[in-house]
Design a protein around this nucleic acid. Structure first.
Length: 655
DNA sequence: TCGTCGAGCA
């Protein structure tokens, strides 16, 4: 990818190390002039501007700049950093212009770096690029600033190209270049080479240049492999490190958390505590483990951690309490989460509010979510990007179309520019409510490129309402954007199947086979006596399954007496009706419900998690079972919670 | 003389 410069080229006379003369010149002049009776006006003005920048009085600082005869490096730096903090692109540009006409500092690499940083923070990538291209003195800091700017703006491919340039131009790369380069591998939006291949390439290069064991590089590697789901590679990097600190341990714990391995996350957390008395977990470590529990509904593990948090005094940290509250809500305990939120009291931050809104949302309490949103605004907090994703999602789960539209339209009042995620929520909201034309119009009106999530929301709505034409439109984009996502093919096949377009179903099945893609098997799991039991639909070898299926069969027979007709349309095999019914009986969620009935006491809530959306048939059967057995059953599917009680589901059959 | 990079929650 990029050739390596010999180590000997890392020498102070190398062009990558900039000259420092201009800075010294101005320092000297400032020193000699201040040796008189008192500081001269220029020194005073420089100092004043720096003070104003630090206190956020930007307009006053900017007004002083034109009249200032000799700005110092520190003055330029203060102005640029303040402009970036305040989001003031005009000020950054004004400082840039002034700098270009300054004979002392115009080629100063330190200020080139600061300019690139400022433009990157302001989202002005073309300007950042221009500063780099025109910088006469490109030292390693200038190069790294460019890599960071490109990666931040999701131009990972360009960052990697520049990294390759560094090799060609014999600019010695350092640990910073590698960390940016690794992040760039993940930040590539569209490319032919998969991200994992790119990461491995940069990893190999880092090994050759002796940087793979560098603490920051290794930690970034763990995180990259974690994000790509290649847990074994992350484990290898972690195992090979000569030293570990709280960040690398947390990264590895986070890797297990991201990849749905809460038991391993907790085990590693225990190893960390046992490994070194001086190694103290911090809030990020705890939050990662809590998140691992929340991700797979491992409530008992989460409770153990709650005890640890109290014992060790971590409950003084709002970020830990936020994660704890999110864990309870994501494990189905909405009320416990609410109590923790109340307990946090005045220390609540935006994350606390967002968590509560999101918690109400996934449990189907849309009105409560909107109410919490309004309270949040009332107490004077500014809703963030995430706040709107949470509250729009809540509206969508509860079918609150008008409220959702109003909130979406109000976003700019809070200076939150709608992103693809917000459009995806809106398309989901409109589409599921049956307003498909409006959903399509919204997509067509987008000022940014619709993401796969946006098209996916449309496709999901088409499945509910049986709209073949729009489904094909969504898939024509999705097959381009996510050629390896089997779910899209399966959804379209399902829509065709319900429309009795069997030839088209066959075409899609062939496409799936051609691409070597497999439908993600349905999997449900539940915790009984601190042990997680999982069930897959295809798993017929497991002996207890027959017993579980027989039990479900009895319920279904009862239901049929009351007029229930199995929803065999969702089985896409060309087989007899009876065989289709047998397949429905084997759905993992039904098996888990049966297992829960047998292995828990009466009156105990049965809590199940499923990796996909609930199917209509499982939904009907679970409603019936909750009434027939007088049991409360809580199912968390990939999108939301369903609380089944007395034959009714909290989603109101709208999900 | 300066200085940049790593882990988390919604």
């Amino acid at each position: 990818m990029f050739s390596s410069a010999p180590a000997s080229s890392l020498h102070p006379t190398h062009p990558a190390f900039g000259s420092r003369r201009p800075t010294l010149a101005r320092c000297r002049s400032s020193l000699s002039s201040s040796s008189g009776a008192g500081p001269p006006p220029a020194a005073n003005a420089n100092h004043l501007i720096q003070t104003l920048c630090a206190s956020g009085s930007l307009s006053r600082a900017a007004a002083l700049l034109p009249g200032l005869p000799a700005p110092t490096q520190r003055t330029y730096e203060s102005l640029l950093q303040a402009a970036a903090r305040a989001g003031d692109a005009a000020l950054a540009a004004a400082v840039h212009r002034r700098l270009e006409s300054d004979p002392v500092f115009r080629s100063d690499p330190f200020l080139s770096t600061r300019l690139i940083d400022a433009y990157a923070a302001l989202g002005a990538l073309p300007a950042a690029r221009q500063v780099f291209d025109e910088a006469p003195d490109k030292n390693i800091f200038v190069w790294n600033a460019l890599l960071k700017a490109l990666t931040l703006a999701d131009h990972g491919d360009e960052a990697l190209a520049r990294l390759a340039d560094m090799g060609r131009l014999r600019v010695p790369v350092d640990s910073y270049s590698y960390t940016h380069g690794l992040k760039a591998c993940i930040a590539v939006s569209a490319s032919h080479a998969p991200a994992s291949a790119r990461v491995r390439e940069v990893h190999a290069h880092a090994i050759r240049r002796g940087y793979a064991l560098h603490m920051h590089v290794a930690t970034t590697l763990i995180d990259c492999y974690a994000k790509l789901g290649i847990v074994s590679y992350a484990e290898n990097v972690f195992a090979a490190m000569p030293e570990r600190n709280v960040v690398s341990w947390s990264a590895m714990i986070g890797c297990y958390a991201k990849n749905e391995r809460p038991a391993d996350a907790i085990e590693l957390f225990k190893d960390m505590l046992a490994s070194d008395a001086d190694l103290v977990p911090n809030s990020i470590t705890i939050v990662s483990v809590l998140n691992a529990c929340a991700g797979v509904n491992a409530l008992s593990h989460g409770k153990l951690l709650h005890a640890y948090i109290l014992r060790r005094g971590f409950d003084s940290l709002v970020s830990v309490l936020n994660a704890l509250m999110a864990m309870y809500m994501r494990c189905g305990c909405l009320e416990v989460g609410r109590r923790i939120f109340n307990w946090i009291g005045r220390r609540r931050d935006v994350v606390s509010w967002n968590s509560l809104i999101s918690g109400y949302g996934v449990h189907g309490f849309g009105r409560e979510a909107v109410q919490v949103f309004e309270e949040m605004v009332q107490v004077g907090l500014s809703p963030s990007i995430i706040t709107f994703i949470s509250v729009l999602g809540a509206c969508s789960h509860a079918g609150l179309v008008d409220e959702g539209k109003k909130l979406f339209e109000s976003m700019m009042d809070y200076s939150v520019k709608p992103r693809a995620e917000h459009y995806a929520c809106m398309v989901d909201l409109l589409g599921r409510a049956g307003q498909l034309d409006e959903a399509v119009e919204l997509i067509q009106s987008m000022h940014i490129e619709p993401s796969p999530q946006v098209w996916g929301a449309l496709l999901g709505a088409c499945r509910i309402h049986g709209h073949v034409e729009y489904a094909e439109m969504a898939c024509s984009r999705l097959f381009d954007l996510e050629p390896r996502n089997a779910g899209n093919y399966v959804l379209l096949a399902d829509i065709y199947s319900r429309a009795k377009l069997n030839d088209q179903v066959d075409v899609l099945k062939e496409l799936l086979e051609e691409h070597g893609l497999e439908k993600v098997p349905g999997c449900s799991w539940m915790e009984v006596n601190k042990k997680i039991h999982s069930f897959t639909s295809v798993d017929n070898k497991n002996p207890p399954v027959e017993q579980l299926q027989a039990l479900i069969g009895e319920f279904v027979a009862q239901m049929k007496n009351q007029g229930y007709v199995p929803d065999t349309d969702i089985v896409m095999y060309d087989i007899e009706e009876e065989e289709k019914e047998r397949i429905l009986l084997g759905h993992s969620e039904k098996l888990a419900v049966a297992f829960g009935l047998i292995n828990t006491r009466g009156g105990e809530v049965i809590r199940i998690t499923k990796n996909l959306r609930l199917c209509e048939d499982c939904h009907s059967v679970t409603k019936f079972i909750s009434k027939f057995t007088e049991r409360e059953i809580v199912v968390k599917d990939v999108n939301r919670f369903h609380h089944f009680r007395d034959g009714i589901c909290s989603c109101g059959d709208y999900w």
